[in-house]
Design a protein around this nucleic acid. Sequence first.
DNA 1: CTTAAATGATACCATTTGGTATCTCGATAA
DNA 2: TTATCGAGATACCAAATGGTATCATTTAAG
Lengths: 106, 106
Amino acid sequence: MTDHAQRSFRALADPTRRDILRLLSQHEMTIAEVAENFQMTRAAVKKHLSILQDGELISMRAIGRTKVNALNPDGMKRINDWLSYFDTFWDDKLADLKTSIEKDMQ
Amino acid sequence: MTDHAQRSFRALADPTRRDILRLLSQHEMTIAEVAENFQMTRAAVKKHLSILQDGELISMRAIGRTKVNALNPDGMKRINDWLSYFDTFWDDKLADLKTSIEKDMQ
DNA sequence: CTTAAATGATACCATTTGGTATCTCGATAA
DNA sequence: TTATCGAGATACCAAATGGTATCATTTAAG
């Protein structure tokens, strides 16, 4: 669980948490504001927010007695970095295809 | 669970399964070949492969009595599509920043 | 045909996960 | 100061998850 990528991927694996991310892409929100958009208790939403924070997909900053949640690019970057490994794979596949086609044409 | 994106994200949420994907990026492998690379039973590896297939991150085709596993771009595409929603978010953030800077300069 | 190898299927176990309920803490408004 | 509201913490529960062990099925090889 010390793996950063693992924390980010885990955080994305729940539909509620992905919905929260889309919500926060509109504007920052307190825990209570986020919770208004779901049919579960604030405590449950808070857990989701903690997991999102653990995956560095959101950041939380205290303002008085409220806590404001905002998207954090770090987690997204980590996900994209991991996925980019496979971009080169697809490129290689296309190159292989091109090579075999050229071979066929000889 | 009928949501395709959910199946793909869920499949990526386990480190063993992500390792399997990287393995398969080298070349296709049978279940037994994949299992050689892990310290768990073949049955456990098979479960992971089934979940990866469910998320359309790999495809399996039977060859005689063996089953060959290969990467499937469909699942990756679904992940990238979902993530791309936030690309525009980051772009907007940058645009907002640019706007506020321009405003400051007036 | 018989046997062994690769996979499929099932039952079972421990742990994690998503959720609720409840209590406490801390800041703010009166 | 005091009452209150947003948040943190904890205990608890049901279901999902990752794993094993075991048995059945199919196919290739002698």
